[in-house]
Design a protein around this nucleic acid. Structure first.
Lengths: 227, 227
DNA sequence: TAAATGCTTCGTCTACGATCGAACCATGAA
DNA sequence: TTCATGGTTCGATCGTAGACGAAGCATTTA
């Protein structure tokens, strides 16, 4: 109707507790089935089904049928970005009152933000790549420089394959815990999955927490020149 | 309860049509009274009062009493940032279907995003400052370089005064229309208000649209080196 | 085929919240 | 003081959306 986009629709989608729980669960980046999301939200499978169809209708979720399963993920990085932003709003207010527990400390140190690395570790990575000139912020968005291309392929990531896909390669994402940017986009995802493949880190089973192994932490520091 | 912040609360706040209308109205950056917001949302003043107290309770709004009036603004730049992000989500989906009209074109060209310049013009400004080394993105957040300090004061902005305030000086804000960053923070606000004072541009009465004057457009281009 | 699993649809119930009329405070003007 | 204006609080109404039980599809396994 008006010139501005319809905010209320999306707000209402996020505004329901059950749906919000599902969305936060999907922030892990994993594809989850309808029944898993139902458990996560603490509702029966029928109501979950209703919620999921609404979320999908609102283009917040992406669906991938596979056999008799339905795997849901967040629709794209933008959705994740908005969700992180909202978390930042609550964090700014609540965190001051609530004493941050060990679980939150782990979240702040390293967590997954829709399949890419966030938290303190994510920012270190971003800063390193930017500082060494591997990432460029010159013109539009964020770009991978020639040296960055070499570095990344040398690290073991198939950049050409990522470039072939239609999804944006680099994107920055603002962190609610640290108030700084970290690397998102398909490249950000590739970094995380590759580090996991290298055994540097492990994802916690049912949360967004990431735990680095002892050797992985050292390898991370030396690979990216963290003092 | 859980480790992650409580998203649903904020989503629900944004999710009501009346409240959403108020928030989008406040994206203009102007301070609006309760009754103005009631008109904007199309509800009576009583219900508006209820909504406003909820929004304030949720730390989305900042209140400033003045005489028998109550002036509301968005609580901070982060709130504006999140709202723009949500608009971006809807824009990505709806804008493809809906043919963009002249009103939207004006919005894309130049608009106010919580008191700083957004849209195409906002990005030009940001790119220019970054390209000339006046803004630095090295380490944490965004910073004003020495040359940027000189340039800005030369432009007629009292940077020292801004630095004295507790609000962050520079911040980047992602644009939904252009998918690029522009300058937010108190410095971004200062740029907009100063340009308005110089007569370069005029804000539309009841929208977020900004119209540059003919001379203002030329002055803008030469001041920031837009070809 | 039958049985089991994953998910959807239907119908009903319930509860919360948005809305407004009316009365009530508070501030500023006459 | 009295009047007008800006805003809040109370109470009642009403709608809608969320919840689940039960039945219905669909797909995979036996």
């Amino acid at each position: 109707m008006k010139g501005s986009p319809n905010i209320a629709r999306i707000g209402a989608l996020i505004g329901d507790p059950a749906r919000a729980a599902m969305l936060t669960a999907l922030m892990s980046g994993k594809a989850l089935t309808a029944s898993e999301l139902a458990r996560e939200a603490g509702v029966t499978i029928q109501t979950a089904s209703s919620h999921l169809s609404k979320l999908q209708q609102g283009d917040l979720l992406h669906l991938r049928k596979q056999g008799r399963h339905k795997y849901f993920t967040l629709a794209n990085d933008d959705v994740a970005h908005v969700l992180e932003g909202i978390m930042g709003l609550v964090a700014g207010n609540d965190m001051l009152k609530t004493r941050i527990g060990p679980r939150d400390m782990a979240l702040r140190n390293a967590r997954v933000c829709y399949n890419h690395l966030a938290g303190d570790k994510g920012i270190q990575l971003y800063r390193s790549l930017l500082g060494k000139g591997h990432l460029l912020l010159d013109e539009k968005q964020l770009g991978l420089s020639a040296s960055g291309h070499d570095f990344t392929t040398g690290f073991g990531i198939d950049v050409e394959q990522l470039k072939a896909a239609k999804a944006p390669l680099c994107r920055e994402c603002l962190d609610w815990s640290e108030r700084r940017s970290h690397l998102a986009g398909s490249l950000g995802r590739a970094f995380l999955t590759h580090m996991e493949a290298l055994g540097w880190l492990k994802r916690a089973r049912d949360s967004r927490v990431i735990r680095f192994t002892i050797s992985g932490e050292g390898a991370f520091d030396s690979a990216f020149g963290i003092e």
